[in-house]
């Protein structure tokens, strides 16, 4: 494809998605509004901000994860990252009690959780990926097993937890796109802003890393260090999205692969914003349609997971897992 044609097509895609994003946001803020505008705008505004942060975190973390894994069907959540986040929450409630946990500074708590996630991703990388076993199938299998382990441990601990503590925990964990935890918005916003600045500076490095270890090394990129650092960024983003709405498995896979599908280029400077826009349109737009048009309440995550799961199966069948 000629460079000019590609540039035009990228511009058209970005323009179209931007328009859709604005429409979705405006609809989200205004449709079906009854009563005081100042209340509606601040209430819905906080929710919208949370959805946008979640969309960004999931889209960017998935694309970057697939870049460093050189594989377009693994995602951080398939590898058990957010199951670990839930386990961390459970262990925290179990160890120090929900009451004291609630009294803790949410910022400090978030930092601890994000830090633990980083530690885990680091270990995971050292144990599995740095060794000779670079097979994506083994990798996914290990990830899925880790995920099951984390989930089973969580549910075991939840079973022996005091019922009232469990209620509080459930409230923290099973947030959905509907019941966003807006108390963490400020921290999440700051964290996402910092991560964005770092990512912007690293865009060309990601393009090189996507070529794989050999080519990246030959072109002078310290592959191991870049991957470790990127995994840390991904951990932070997962912590943000899981803290705000709880674990989502297939959403990242869906938006990342849609972005690859419609874009004629693999440059991260294009893929990351487009994947983010698709994620925002899907989340915000989906929420509007479900809440306002069909008047359903809890189904968006189910529908997204359903479609995402179908895409996952399709990708496996089509052999994208090579």
């Amino acid at each position: 494809m000629l460079p000019e044609v590609r540039r035009k097509r990228v511009r058209a895609i970005v323009a179209l998605l931007s328009v859709l994003t604005v429409i979705a946001m405006v609809a989200f803020m205004t449709l079906g509004a009854k009563g005081s505008w100042s209340f509606i705008l601040s209430f819905r505004g906080a929710k919208l901000a949370a959805l946008v942060l979640v969309a960004f975190s999931i889209a960017v973390s998935t694309v970057l994860f697939q870049t460093i894994m050189e594989n377009r069907i693994v995602t951080p959540s398939i590898m058990g990252f957010d199951a670990l986040y839930v386990l961390l929450q459970t262990v925290l409630v179990f160890a120090i009690g929900a009451g004291r946990l609630s009294a803790m500074d949410p910022f400090l708590l978030f930092l601890i959780e994000a830090g633990m996630l980083m530690l885990f991703s680091n270990l995971l990388y050292r144990w599995i990926l740095a060794g000779a076993a670079r097979s994506p199938h083994l990798l996914m299998l290990v990830g899925i097993v880790f995920g099951i382990l984390f989930r089973s441990l969580s549910s075991f601990l939840q079973r022996i937890l005091d019922p009232s503590e469990f209620l509080i925990l459930q409230d923290r964990m099973f947030a959905s796109f509907n019941a966003v935890d807006t108390s963490l918005l400020g921290i999440a916003g700051v964290v996402v802003a910092i991560v964005t600045v770092i990512i912007l500076r690293m865009l060309p490095v990601f393009d090189v890393v996507a070529l794989g270890r050999n080519h990246a090394t030959a072109l002078g990129v310290d592959h191991n260090r870049t991957i470790m650092f990127t995994l840390a960024l991904i951990s932070v983003l997962i912590a943000v999205s899981t803290a705000l709405v709880g674990p989502v498995t297939f959403f990242g896979l869906l938006v990342a692969n849609l972005a690859y599908l419609i874009l004629p280029t693999s440059r991260h400077a294009v893929v990351l914003p487009v994947a983010t826009l698709i994620a925002v349109v899907t989340l915000v737009g989906g929420q509007v349609i479900l809440e306002r048009v069909f008047a359903f309440d809890t189904a968006l995550s189910i529908i997204i997971e359903f479609v995402g799961g179908l895409v996952f199966i399709l990708l496996v069948v089509r052999g994208a897992a090579r």
Binding site: R72, L203, G212, N214, L219, Y260
Partner: peptide
């Protein structure tokens, strides 16, 4: 072994040869 996970044009690929000099 030169398998690539990303989809690139010939020009994209060759341009990466300039990365050490221009850093993108």
């Amino acid at each position: 072994d030169n398998h690539l996970a990303v989809r690139l044009t010939v020009r994209d690929l060759v341009s990466f040869g300039r990365y050490p000099h221009s850093k993108g």
